[in-house]
Computed example of a mutant assay.
Amino acid sequence: MRLDGNAQVARAIHDELSAPVPPKDVHCAEHLNDDQRSSFDIIIEAIDVENGRIFFIDGPSGTGKTYLYRAILATVKLRGKYKLPVASSGIAATLFHRGKTAHKTLGIPVTLHASSTWKFSKQDVKTQLVKYAAVIIWDEATMTHRHEYEAINRSLRDLTGVYVPFGGKVVVFGGDFRQILPVVPKGTKAQTIVACLVRSTLWTHVQLLHLTQNMRSIHDPEFATFLLRVGDGCEPIVDEDMIKLPSSICVGNGDQISVDNLIRQIFPNLTKHVGDVFYMVQRAIITPTNDEVDMLNEKILKEFAGEEKTFYSFDSVPEDRQNLYQQEFLNSLSFSGFPPHILKLKVGSPIMLLRNINTSSGLCNGTRLICSRLRDHVIEAEI
């Protein structure tokens, strides 16, 4: 039997509300620190009284923003209300139960301008679910162009018929302006700043909530304080925009010996932990360029036991362009967001997904996996 629009919406809402709250989120609200508790109480009160408000949770990395989101979402769900968790990136969306990217959930146009709107149909089930939501939580909001928020604001006003910011919805943005800002292709520093949420007319309606206690470095307050000084621009500058790292977090001057020491520091007893998911997910080395990535991957892979398998990218060149580009030259290029032409792997190797395949299942850009089996043309891996 085919359901009409209202019945489909009712069924979708029932399915969402009847789904169990993740066990790890049920008691989150009981373990909040003072900053988190203060923000939690303010937001939950606004949701309970259905008082349309806009909040921005400002906190450096490690201060427990995601934990606070989970506490809010679990509490809203347990009170029988519908919530809408979204994020600006796929990897951030996977941290929410049933989280999705904002573009997928809200149908945001790829090409935006100052008067863009969300292209929706009021009879569409997804549109009605957005209208029904008691709260919208939007993570990593600092990396999204302000035109997106302004487009959603105009569309929600039209959808709800309530002509106040975001149609009277409780909206919770979160992020850290010390990290990634909106990407403006070939844009200047000034153009990037203008693209930020703080330069939107909506910002005057935003209530700022601050998280300051670094829970990730709670046992290393000196390092946490150093990170804040760097993020706030208070760390002394040595040369132009360069700062000097404390000797306590340096392992050498970049020569071969110091690189080996770095690998041993980050991956101690690596040979004994090959294939250990918990061991691998707790550590990573981040580098500024792909050249360092390739060098470190090659050195670390040698520590893995087993047979090495090599995969090559598809590298044919159209006949009319064979005289313009040599295959050897094309194969030597290494671009951000693309795998190398030659990919060497062993069973147990950690890898990273580069495309959004199924965000709801956790398969999105940035997801880390571990190789479980290597075939001729297929790589089997687990999240």
Rank of each mutant, 00 (worst) to 15 (best):
C196P: 07
G168A: 08
I379L: 04
P288C: 14
H210Q: 12
I57E: 05
C250T: 13
Y67G: 06
V49T: 11
I300Q: 05
T94Y: 01
G168M: 04
T117D: 08
N365Y: 08
L301Q: 04
P85G: 02
K309D: 14
R321C: 13
R37Q: 10
L17R: 03
K244S: 15
R11T: 11
E148K: 14
T188S: 14
G306Q: 04
A305E: 14
F120K: 12
I47E: 03
I72S: 05
V170P: 03
V170C: 04
V317I: 15
D139M: 07
A12R: 02
S116F: 00
F120S: 00
D294E: 09
G64S: 09
L209P: 15
F314I: 13
L208A: 02
N253K: 03
N6G: 09
T287L: 14
K346P: 15
I383W: 00
A92T: 00
A46T: 04
S313V: 01
N33L: 07
M280C: 13
L202P: 05
H145N: 13
R70Q: 05
F335M: 12
R229S: 13
K126Y: 13
R178T: 05
D260P: 03
R98F: 01
S336G: 09
D315P: 15
E292V: 10
D260F: 00
M352Q: 01
P109L: 00
V198G: 12
Y69F: 06
S217M: 09
L181Q: 02
G337M: 11
I263C: 05
S332Y: 12
K65D: 10
I136L: 12
N269Y: 13
P246C: 04
R199G: 08
Y279H: 02
I42P: 15
A87P: 15
H377F: 15
Q322G: 14
H205R: 06
L333N: 09
I263G: 03
S38E: 08
E16N: 04
V170K: 01
S61H: 08
Y279W: 09
G306H: 06
L208S: 07
V198N: 11
V293Y: 07
V9C: 10
R37V: 04
S217Q: 11
C28M: 09
I43E: 03
G362P: 00
D239W: 08
T127P: 09
Q256G: 04
D276W: 14
D41I: 03
R216C: 06
E150R: 06
Y149R: 07
R178C: 05
C364R: 06
P165E: 09
G348Q: 03
T289I: 13
I249D: 00
D34W: 08
F173Q: 07
T111N: 11
R53A: 00
A195H: 05
G5H: 12
T105W: 03
I91V: 14
A102P: 12
E30N: 06
N153A: 09
K272V: 09
L68W: 04
K309R: 00
P318G: 06
I263F: 10
A134W: 08
S349I: 02
T289E: 10
G306P: 11
L211K: 08
I108S: 07
S361R: 04
R321W: 10
R199S: 13
M1V: 11
K272D: 00
K24G: 07
L181I: 01
Y149I: 10
T225S: 12
P246D: 01
L354W: 14
M1P: 02
